[in-house]
């Protein structure tokens, strides 16, 4: 399945999408596919700062915990509390409703450091083999 346009990725499978001076942050379909039995999502509060490539939260399944890494640097202005309540949203559509954070970007140019869809897919392919 093709991924929607306008998204870029970290190697650790988090995505960012630009929206004016803000960006939206979530995790990719590939990451979701590898997570089963999700039970908990820990996201930072509004007002907190996050830094590109640094952990900003955790996602837990019954028997594993994964760190979530920030694709962009900035201040959290919104977080998706509905997703925290209803983790199954990730399975349905990781691109829109299941966003995690909305961030006021500090360095929009960081977006250029992220992987475009094609290179992201190549990375996944090489991981799987």
């Amino acid at each position: 399945m093709a991924r929607p346009d306008g998204y870029r990725y970290l190697k650790t499978h988090e995505w960012a999408r630009l929206d004016g001076e803000h960006c939206w942050i979530g995790i990719s379909d590939h990451a979701v596919g590898h997570l089963s039995d999700l039970v908990f999502l820990d996201l930072p509060e509004c007002g907190q700062d996050i830094m590109q490539n640094e952990p900003f939260g955790e996602i837990e399944s019954v028997k594993a915990v994964s760190d979530l890494y920030a694709p962009m640097t900035g201040e959290v202005v919104e977080r998706n509390d509905r997703l925290i309540e209803e983790l199954d949203m990730l399975k349905r559509d990781p691109w829109n409703d299941a966003w995690m954070l909305k961030v006021r970007m500090e360095k929009p140019s960081e977006f250029e450091n992220l992987l475009e869809d094609g290179s992201y897919q190549r990375m996944i392919d090489s991981e799987d083999h």
Binding site: V39, E60, S61, V62, K63, A64, V65
Partner: peptide
Amino acid sequence: LATREQFIRREK
């Protein structure tokens, strides 16, 4: 909530 425990979360 075994994810708090050493056999999963190790040093954390």
